[in-house]
C-alpha cells in the first residue's frame, strides 16, 4: 500500500533576489513498510523533499498525497492534524522539548492526539524499552547523551503509530557507535511495526541500512533503486 506519493513537485526558495529551485519536477512514492534513504550531496534537495512529505512545507506546484489525501492545499490546522496522526519525525539535532523528561517527550504526541492515560503509559514504556531507555524515563534531555536523546526522539516518532517516520540526517550529530545503534533500532522497529521509514542522509554507513536508495542531485531524482 502506498503511503506517500509525490508528483511533479517543484519547490523554489528566494534568497534575496536570487531564486533557487530546491526541487525540480520530482515524482516518487513510498510504500508501507519501506526503509528508504534519500541520498545526495548538500543542497541536492533531500531535506526539502522530506519536509514536503512531512507536511511541514508546501510545494509551489505538484501534488503530495499522504495515504490517499492530497495535502498540497491543506491549511495549517489540517496539516498539523495529518502530521499528528500519520507522520513521525526524527531530526538531525536532538529535537526534544528541553523541559520535559524522556517519558514526557515520548508521551507528548500521544497527548496531542488525545490518547487515554492508560494506553499512553503502556505505549510510552513499551517504546522506551524498545529503544533501550527504560531506565532513563525521568531524565531530561540535558541529562542524557546525544545517542540517548536521539533514541528518545525515535521512540517519540513512533508513539502515535504513524504510517511513516521521516528522519532528516538522524545520525549526523552522533558518533559511529551511536549512529549505528540508532539505525539498527529504526531498522528493527520498521520490521516489527511495518512503519515506513524515509531518511535523508549523505553518510555511506547509514545508506548501508537502506533497502531502497533514492539519489538526488540539483533538485532532481537521478537514481532510484535497491539499497547499496
Amino acid at each position: 500500500m502506498e503511503v506517500i506519493r509525490v508528483e511533479h513537485v517543484i519547490k523554489t526558495y528566494h534568497i534575496g533576489q536570487i531564486e533557487t529551485r530546491a526541487l525540480d519536477d520530482v515524482s516518487m512514492s513510498v510504500e508501507a513498510g519501506e526503509f528508504t534513504a534519500l541520498v545526495g550531496p548538500s543542497g541536492s534537495g533531500k531535506t526539502t523533499l522530506l519536509q514536503l512529505m512531512g507536511c511541514l512545507d508546501r510545494p509551489n506546484s505538484g501534488a503530495v498525497t499522504i495515504n490517499g489525501h492530497d495535502v498540497a492545499r491543506y491549511n495549517a490546522g489540517q496539516r498539523a492534524d495529518l502530521r499528528k496522526k500519520e507522520i513521525g519525525f526524527v531530526f538531525q539535532f536532538f529535537a526534544l522539548v528541553p523541559v520535559l523528561n524522556a517519558y514526557e517527550n515520548v508521551e507528548l504526541p500521544l497527548l496531542l492526539s488525545g490518547v487515554k492515560p492508560k494506553e499512553r503509559r503502556s505505549r510510552v514504556l513499551e517504546l522506551l524499552n524498545a529503544v533501550g531507555l527504560s531506565d532513563r524515563t525521568t531524565h531530561r534531555p540535558d541529562q542524557m547523551s546525544g545517542g540517548e536523546q536521539q533514541r528518545v526522539a525515535i521512540a517519540r516518532a513512533l508513539a502515535t503509530r504513524p504510517s511513516m517516520v521521516l528522519a532528516d540526517e538522524p545520525t549526523a550529530n552522533l558518533d559511529t557507535a551511536n549512529g549505528e545503534q540508532a539505525m539498527t533500532i529504526m531498522q528493527q522497529l520498521n520490521e516489527q511495526t511495518g512503519t515506513a521509514f524515509v531518511f535523508a542522509t549523505h553518510d555511506p554507513r547509514v545508506m548501508a541500512f537502506a533497502r531502497r536508495t533514492v539519489r538526488l542531485r540539483d533538485g532532481k531524482i537521478v537514481e532510484d533503486g535497491a539499497g547499496n
Binding site: A76, D81, A95, V97, P98, L108, P109
Partner: peptide, 16 residues
C-alpha cells in the same frame, strides 16, 4: 523558536 517548530511538527496547533 526551534522548540515551537518541534511541537508544530508533532502536530501542536496554532491555538495550542
Amino acid at each position: 523558536i526551534r522548540e515551537i517548530g518541534i511541537l508544530s511538527a508533532l502536530g501542536m496547533k496554532r491555538f495550542q
